[in-house]
Design a protein around this nucleic acid. Structure first.
Lengths: 338, 338
DNA sequence: CTGAAAGCGCTAACAC
DNA sequence: GTGTTAGCGCTTTCAG
């Protein structure tokens, strides 16, 4: 019970492989009789062409790959929905690929590029520390969407990126708290270093404090060790318990939601007893009670600009560029004036 | 600036394609000198083998594909995390593929099977109405994880499934509300028909009511038209406004969370003024305030049983089977006694 | 309009 | 150990 090949279909329909190939690829130069016959044989035998063989022989495509690091990330899911139609509108096909947190997106990209003869790549989530040699294997244009190479050493002319400024955004979030009169502001982060988004946002927290002349109280920093809600919850409980902040800045919405829950479980009311602010603006945090106040990433623009830059690169109408987008305060009900 | 092939690497390292192929595939019968030389050439030229060519020539694999319909679904993300290690433990590699809501998972499966010579397939999310002819093109064993072919016409011996009984689970949810004294129970669903999970769960709602001798009040049924939170929110607002239920049964956690928010925005307290119960048990609803009461799907068991059945099928040690798993009441704080 | 034949890049006998 | 070679299934000239 092996699989049928194009050869079998040719034999079964009394024609040649080239004719079958033609109907498969919807070429016009096939007689209607032949086309019908072939189609019939294909249908009744459930023939499915072998894509590997096809990809092997096709040396070009109009495919742009989306390589995504972070399966469950709802923010990425939202970006995809915006990216796809834009890509199609520009005449490209999109091919989505998820990689595991432990995998290297650049290796995945190089393989994909070769396999599918990609025209370009959009990365959703990846390392912040690429080196020139890391990207040497990638011969097509690519853009990092929603993150930058903050800790790496790439020449700006060799890649593109569209993202928010994480340090500044975190600063703004903390400043919002400051403006509302808060002084004991906790930070709920993944870790202080590691060259990740957590480090950048933590640095923003630090600079906001220091610019306001507030000395850092180490007990106010809660490291969850991951971006998981459960870890964030535990870290928030510990943080609240030991440091009694009047407000918490969480580096992500998910962690902010976990902090709100921690507060509730400790009989603190948000925002009366504890204010919470975060960064991201995912759909879910809009349905919290109270709605989470957050600095929302401009998802739409992030996605659209990424596509446009990439298209420009492919069509040689543009050059590698780096766009920093503004976040907007999505005022919920989780922050109050003290 | 085209890509290097195995032939180029052979030439550049002064050896033959077979030797290069051998080091690529980590065969032992290569002299250490040759291996080093080849590795060096590969590294310095950023050579990446063409997977299409490899897949084409390899006529077997130990790959099991996970075909997922529903990108953003957090429940599926959780299942994947459980499935992967179990698959590896059984000696299989996993290959994850997401398809769009508009795509047909069976077509995708057939193509993948052919392309990668799959050993088996696990579907996460799919249509409920396969016909025998639909699956004819799939020659390897497959299991539907977390859904069943409730509206289709497949012989049970031709496929496997592991899922909860949606009708009974919905019934239980509504019965829980009934036991707590509720009589005006609203249903927040996607739509009443359409052969989807929404229909099944709605039928469970209906049967619970009728068995309790409660006449159906059509105004108590809120159809959101989708599973989106925004649509569910709007439907909940309408439902609450027109029918004044004391409790709402939502067919999914996400929709339940939206209902809680709708209540809050209408100045109703959950659970004091309105109780809410749902089905799924996703992580997020655990962080709602109050925690959403829900009938949790046994994610772990769903995933594990799926893998085990598939492995049994592949190794000819088992037969196609259909497992119905029990949900468990995850009592949160969103339901109260009236 | 149709068919024969030449590869696409790679793996795996098979010979040496 | 190593090289030669025959395909894997498909698309695409190139003749007819």
């Amino acid at each position: 019970m092996s699989h049928l090949t194009i050869k079998d279909i040719a034999r079964l329909s009394g024609t040649s492989v080239s004719t079958v190939s033609r109907v498969l690829n919807e070429h016009v130069d096939v007689s209607e009789t032949a086309r019908q016959k072939v189609l019939e044989v294909i249908g009744s035998n459930h023939y499915v062409p072998n894509n590997s063989a096809r990809n092997l022989v096709i040396r070009k495509s109009n495919v742009i790959a989306l390589i995504i690091r972070g399966r469950g990330n709802p923010f990425f899911a939202r970006l995809i929905k915006i990216i796809e139609p834009r890509l199609n509108k520009s005449g490209y096909d999109m091919s989505v690929h998820y990689i595991d947190t432990s995998d290297d997106e650049l290796k995945a990209a190089a393989m994909l590029e070769r396999e599918k003869r990609l025209k370009g790549i959009i990365f959703l989530g990846g390392r912040f520390n690429y080196l020139a040699d890391d990207i040497a294997a990638i011969k097509v244009p690519f853009v990092c969407c929603s993150y930058t190479n903050a800790f790496g050493a790439l020449e700006e002319g060799n890649y593109s990126s569209v993202a928010i400024d994480d340090r500044i955004t975190a600063r703004r979030a903390v400043e919002h708290l400051l403006q509302k009169g808060h002084r004991r502001i906790g930070a709920l982060i993944e870790r202080k270093d590691g060259g990740s988004i957590s480090q950048l946002r933590y640095e923003g927290y630090l600079s906001a404090l220091s610019d306001s002349g507030i000395a850092l109280d180490a007990s106010l920093v809660g490291c969850a060790g991951s971006f998981e809600m459960s870890d964030a919850y535990a870290a928030a409980v510990a943080l609240i318990g030991r440091a009694r902040p009047t407000a918490i800045f969480a580096i992500s919405d998910l962690m902010g939601v976990a902090a709100m829950k921690a507060a509730a479980d400790m009989k603190l009311r948000v925002p009366d007893d504890l204010s919470v602010i975060a960064i991201d603006g995912i759909e879910f945090s809009n349905y919290c009670i109270p709605t989470l106040t957050t600095l929302a990433q401009p998802a739409e623009e992030l996605a659209l600009r990424s596509v446009d830059i990439l298209a420009g690169l492919i069509e040689k109408k543009g050059v590698n560029s780096h766009v920093l987008l503004e976040t907007s305060l999505r005022a919920g009900g989780s922050v109050r004036q003290v």
